[in-house]
C-alpha cells in the first residue's frame, strides 16, 4: 500500500522533532542548574590580567615562554600571545607590525616618513566574560570555567573553525597537529597550582600583571584601583578580562 507508507514516513519525520525537543527540554535545565550552584561556590576565584603598555619593552620573552610552556607548534604563526609594534606617523597613518609574533624581539623599523610615537602592545585571548567563541561552538568544546577562563576541549573539538571566525581579537588558531582550535588558557595548569602564567613569570618589567578580579587584595586589583583601565574593542560588548593601561587610542 504505497499510500500508507508515505503517511508513515510523514509521521516519523513529524514526530522526530518534538520527541528530541522534549528530551532536551527535560535534561537541559538539570544541567544548567548544576552549573549555577557550582558557579557561586568558587566565584571568588576569578582570573584576569592587566597589561601596562607603557612598561612593555618589546623583548618578546613572553611569546617565547608561552610557546615553550604550552608546547605550541614551532612555525612562526601559531601564537597564544604575541607583541604588536605600533608606529603612528605625523600624517596620522598607523603602521602595525609583529615579525614572527615578536618571539625573537624586534629590529628597528624600516622608517618611511616621520613617526610621532611608537610603542609595543602585547596581545592575547581576552578571556571575555561574554565570549562570542563559546556562543558559536556547535558542540560545546569551548567553554567558560568557573574561574572565568575560556578553555578549549581539544578531545571534543571538531575543528569547524567557527570560533576562530567569531573571535574579534584574532586570538584563536587551528593547531595543525590536532586540527583543533587552540588559544591562550592563562596557563590554566599553572594558575590552578598557584603559579603565574608563563608570560607573566618571565616579563622583566612587570608590564603583565596577573591576579584575581574579585579578591580584595591582588596585584591586579591594585593595578585596577590605581590606573585608568581600557579594554580592546569595548563597543563589541565582549567584556574582556584583559585590561590595558595607557592604551593609545589608535590600538585596535
Amino acid at each position: 500500500m504505497p499510500e500508507d507508507r508515505s503517511r508513515r514516513e510523514f509521521l516519523i519525520s513529524v514526530l522526530q522533532f518534538p520527541c528530541s525537543a522534549a528530551l532536551v527540554a527535560v535534561c537541559g535545565p538539570l544541567a544548567t542548574a548544576a552549573a549555577a550552584t557550582e558557579d557561586e561556590a568558587s566565584s571568588e576565584r576569578y582570573f584576569g590580567m592587566g597589561i601596562q603598555v607603557d612598561k612593555c619593552i618589546g623583548c618578546g620573552r613572553c611569546v617565547r615562554a608561552c610557546k615553550t610552556e604550552n608546547d605550541l607548534p614551532e612555525a612562526p604563526f601559531y601564537f597564544r600571545t604575541w607583541i604588536e609594534r605600533y608606529a603612528i606617523h605625523a600624517d596620522g597613518r598607523v603602521d602595525v607590525d609583529s615579525p614572527e609574533g615578536g618571539i625573537n624581539g624586534f629590529l628597528p623599523r624600516e622608517s618611511e616618513g616621520e613617526v610621532v610615537r611608537s610603542f609595543f602592545v602585547p596581545k592575547l585571548c581576552n578571556q571575555c566574560d561574554n565570549p562570542p567563541c563559546v556562543q558559536v561552538c556547535p558542540v560545546g568544546a569551548t567553554f567558560k570555567t568557573d574561574d572565568g577562563v575560556i578553555l578549549v576541549d581539544s578531545d571534543y573539538c571538531i575543528g569547524c573553525r567557527y570560533c576562530i571566525q567569531a573571535c574579534p581579537y584574532g586570538a584563536r588558531f587551528l593547531d595543525p597537529r590536532t586540527k583543533t582550535a587552540d588559544k591562550c588558557t592563562f596557563c590554566y595548569h599553572r594558575i590552578t597550582q598557584g603559579l603565574l602564567p608563563a608570560c607573566v613569570e618571565v616579563c622583566p618589567t612587570g608590564a603583565r600583571v596577573f591576579g584575581e578580579l574579585k579578591a580584595d587584595a591582588s596585584p591586579l586589583r591594585r593595578l585596577m584601583r590605581m590606573s585608568r583601565l581600557q579594554v580592546l574593542k569595548p563597543s563589541l560588548n565582549t567584556e574582556p578580562k584583559v585590561f590595558y593601561t595607557e592604551l593609545d587610542g589608535e590600538v585596535r
Binding site: A31, G140, F143, K144, D153, D155, H189, Q193, L195, L196
Partner: peptide, 24 residues
C-alpha cells in the same frame, strides 16, 4: 558532559594537569 555546564567537566581537569615547564 553537562556536569558543570555545557561542556565536558573532564576537560577542565585535563587542562589543569598539563605539564609545567617554567618552574618559577
Amino acid at each position: 558532559f553537562g556536569e558543570t555546564g555545557h561542556y565536558r567537566a573532564e576537560a577542565v581537569t585535563i587542562a589543569a594537569e598539563l605539564p609545567v615547564r617554567y618552574a618559577g
